[in-house]
Amino acid sequence: MAELVLVAGAWLGSWAWDEVVPELRKAGHGVHPLTLSGLADKQGTAAGQRTHVQDIVDEVERLDLREVVLVGHSYSGIPVGQAADRIGDRLARVVFVDANVPADGKSFVSGWPEGPAMEEAYGAEGSFWQPLPAEEFKGQDLSDEQIAYLVGRATPHPGPTLVEPAVLARPLGELPATFITCLLAGGEEPAPAVAELLTSEHWELVRMDTGHWPMFSRPRELARILNEAAGGPAAD
């Protein structure tokens, strides 16, 4: 079985995977939900994007993990994609959960209409991207209770992580990868950068009929997909 390192997106910590972890452990995998520096229980730690990449690499090396499946949700696809490039033959697969993907020399906000303003606002250490208000979670297949839980536990996201450029030593399309697109978040087809990567023979696309936070809205379905991506048996 594989060793899965789970990294949630902006404003979230390892707690975001609480309903997914037991399902994966029942399937026999090692499961390691990770909080990135500056978030959740690691608030108060200064962090840039390179810090987050190192967080992931350090976790793999500290635990001496092999057959690693790195899972990145939303923002965390950026550091996860870079970490996958750095852990060498420890890597079995990368799974991007409705995620941003890194491009060499580009940041999380590169290409956003508001990107230049965000770069100015979040470039300095000590700046933070504040969590979304509750109304932004509407229409994403979440109950009112789930939205309240998300909003109540979310923490400000370190600003510099959004504007530092990614560094890739080789094309991302060379890595074995699964991209999960959530249909309520962005429609039937993934973004153009992801669509291009999906032309690689090493990449596969999985669609989920849910919103952008499937670890809350569809945890068992997400766990099933992650299990299959990690080489576990397909569900009947």
Rank of each mutant, 00 (worst) to 15 (best):
A8C: 04
G9D: 02
A10S: 15
W11C: 13
L12C: 13
L12P: 00
G13F: 10
W17V: 10
D18I: 01
V21T: 13
E23M: 10
E23H: 15
L24W: 11
L24G: 13
A27H: 02
H29D: 11
G30L: 06
V31Y: 06
V31A: 10
H32K: 00
P33M: 09
P33T: 11
T35P: 12
L36Q: 01
L36D: 04
L36H: 03
S37F: 08
G38W: 05
L39G: 03
L39P: 02
L39F: 06
A40Q: 04
A40E: 09
K42W: 02
G44H: 01
G44R: 02
A46Y: 06
A46D: 15
A47E: 09
G48H: 09
R50T: 14
T51F: 11
H52N: 07
H52I: 04
H52F: 03
Q54F: 02
Q54E: 15
I56D: 11
V57W: 08
D58M: 00
D58K: 00
D58E: 13
E61N: 14
R62M: 07
L63P: 00
L63E: 11
L65P: 07
L65C: 03
R66F: 04
R66C: 01
V68I: 12
V71H: 04
G72N: 10
G72S: 12
G72K: 00
H73C: 06
S74T: 13
S74N: 11
S76Y: 09
S76N: 07
G77L: 08
V80Q: 05
Q82F: 04
Q82A: 09
R86L: 15
R86P: 08
I87G: 13
L91I: 06
L91Q: 09
A92K: 15
R93A: 15
V94Q: 12
V95T: 09
V95D: 08
F96M: 12
V97M: 01
D98Q: 01
D98P: 07
D98V: 03
D98F: 06
A99C: 12
A99G: 14
A99E: 09
N100W: 06
V101Y: 01
A103K: 03
D104V: 06
D104H: 15
K106D: 11
F108N: 01
G111P: 08
W112Q: 13
P113V: 05
G115T: 04
A117F: 09
E120N: 05
A121H: 01
A121L: 14
G123D: 09
G123F: 08
G123R: 00
G123K: 01
E125F: 08
G126I: 05
S127T: 15
W129C: 12
Q130H: 12
P131E: 12
L132R: 14
P133S: 12
E136C: 13
K138N: 10
K138Q: 15
K138H: 08
G139T: 12
G139N: 10
L142N: 13
S143Q: 12
